[in-house]
Nucleic acid binder design. Structure first.
Lengths: 348, 348
DNA sequence: TTTTGGCACTCTCCGGGCCAAAGTGCTACC
DNA sequence: GGTAGCACTTTGGCCCGGAGAGTGCCAAAA
């Protein structure tokens, strides 16, 4: 072999065949089986030689001497790069997804249904999160007195997302005070990014205290109560399909930790944003999540940003075992990402 | 034995001892082990006799001849009746629960935290659902134009629960029309039960069509769009702690179905309301859920209504394996139910 | 030089046989 | 009524041996 680390056409064919059968059977694949099931009449011995080379290059491992070979993360990586691009979605998936998502008007609902349909289509967990980043522009706010110093704040953003938050204040404001405050914010800050609103509001409270004394005091009170606070991120994360993981042939003890991790929705959000926050175009496949989350050794993330036009509104992904139907899942994620843009773009 | 089906003090003691050790070890318990671990110096032979009687009365079963005995549902039922009342909560649980729930102002948040803390304290799944029954009294509604025939409806109820819903209408109403409509509803129906509002509104749309023509037409449009529709029940159901089930020593295949069932939150809600909708005072323990949900054979529901004063605002429960720490869990559920009343009562 | 066939060796995965441990039922005895 | 003893059953662990699948290496064929 002229270049030991290099992959020629024969090596490629054998490697993908190994990955395919390993995904299908879940058992280490040996040279004999491969030569029988594959059409090209290569003898077991030849395949053995190639496998030996591939093992040396880090694409294959043996669980023990004299067992078949098992693909490494590197092999999956290569396999995914190989099939990506030429994959096309199946008709069944397409209609299932379209039917589920058709007629969705707001982002929340879309994401919720997405996590559901992704868990159905793939053999993993469907995840969808709404973007609660700094990109939310304010549409308007609304305050409602609830008695006993309690006030309900409703914040509506341009993207149609609603955040409600019950606050307890130190003083009791009456409804007309609340209306005045809401009007002030709506008139001055419509279209602003929420975090900017907070900064500017804070500044004005400091500086213009003298002028509109009562109004500013009320605003300060509301601000301190958290009227515009971080918008309860847990509410925008949808995880579904945990049942797909249970009953898998992974080590049982690790699985428990994994499910526990999936329940801590903030960590899932961190995971997604860590891998998907760039302005990437298409689906990204991350193999081997153990760097971000140790429990996720042997798991794969297939995700894409959910965009409307140029603006990133959230992320959607499947988290599943390395042994998964990549083609199927990748095309599904990609298709949903396109639908997201299409369905939500026409009503903006 | 004078009365074959009857349970005397000795039988009771042995039965509870059997249940205790079975819960602890998970293995069928035999006469010899029991006589060794128990202080009262009864010989294995005596215990065998008692066990034989208990088996005949339906409290115990044998997995096979010459194995130890395993408690039946009937035994668990008896066991729970026996310990209920004299149970007191542990200090550790009490502080954990108080710390988690302290400072909660609205029902939603309370329920969410409850499902979390219940899953921590017990070895099962913590469930909490908000009451979306007919008891919600309207505080006010609010409509906001979103462009492109889309309108956002926000419904606030007396209990502080907010429901938002994005609708698409057939005509495009402008914001002042929407405000007029919202004012009409708020002035006429504040304090009404939501379902009554719907009925009455429907009636008025029919009858008073002539009088305020424009307003009524707008109201009809909003009504048809679902402004007051069923308030997305899924949002009020919190399930946490599925990880506690994984890694249990149950049959693996059934477990998958169970987790799938737990993900269908509507079915969980049905389950809870089926067992908890009565005006019961305290914690209820339902042993053997297979009648309601076949996948839940060998599972137990420990639940209580979440009330504020006399009004039922939701339900909270733990779903776990029959082999669970009943005392621990029962006291925790009971304690949280009390806290619910206490914490939310003072701010009404 | 590359591919193939052959051969010896290694591991894992059952199935069978065997033994100890734990449990039951029954009978006889205090 | 409670206890002790005894014969019998069932399970689980352990060891062994054979079948199946796979590897590595070497020599022969293409």
């Amino acid at each position: 072999m002229p270049n030991p680390g290099q992959i020629g056409p024969r090596e490629r064919e054998i490697l993908t065949a190994i990955v395919d059968t390993y995904i299908a059977t879940g058992e280490p694949v040996g040279s004999r089986t491969l030569s029988r099931h594959n059409k090209d009449g290569l003898s077991p011995a030849t395949i053995r030689n190639v496998m030996s080379d591939l093992a040396e290059s880090g694409f294959l491992e043996q669980p023990h001497t004299s067992a078949g070979r098992v693909p490494t993360s590197q092999a999956y990586r290569y396999y995914v790069d190989q099939i990506s691009g030429k994959a096309t979605i199946s008709a069944a998936d397409q209609t299932l997804i379209s039917d589920t998502l058709q007629g969705t008007v707001d982002v929340q609902e879309f994401l919720e249904r997405t996590s559901h349909v992704l868990s159905l289509v793939s053999s993993g967990v469907g995840v969808a999160i709404g973007n609660v980043g700094p990109k939310n522009a304010l549409e308007h706010v609304y305050f409602s007195r609830q008695g006993n110093n309690r006030v309900l704040a409703v914040v509506v953003t341009k993207s149609g997302v609603v955040h409600d938050r019950m606050m307890r204040l130190e003083r009791d404001l009456d409804q007309s005070d609340l209306n005045t405050a809401a009007n002030y914010i709506n008139e001055n800050f419509r279209g602003w990014i929420i975090s900017q609103v907070k900064t500017e509001l804070c500044r004005r409270i400091e500086h213009e205290r003298s002028e509109y004394d009562r109004l500013m005091k009320n605003l300060e009170e509301l601000y301190k109560g958290g009227a515009l606070a971080a918008e309860e991120p847990a509410k925008n994360i949808f995880v579904e399909g945990v049942a797909n993981l249970v009953g898998n042939d992974q080590d049982r003890l690790r699985l428990r930790d994994l499910v526990k991790t999936l329940e801590e929705k903030e960590r899932v959000a961190d995971l997604l944003s860590a891998y998907l926050d760039t302005r990437q175009e298409a689906v990204r496949v991350v193999i081997g999540l153990e760097e971000a989350v140790p429990e996720m050794r042997n798991f794969v993330l297939i995700g894409a940003p959910a965009r409307v036009g140029e603006e990133m509104r959230g992320s959607l992904a499947v988290i599943g075992p390395t042994r998964m139907d990549y083609q199927h899942t990748i095309t599904a994620v990609s298709y949903i990402a396109q639908l997201f843009d299409k369905l939500l773009n026409e009503n903006t």
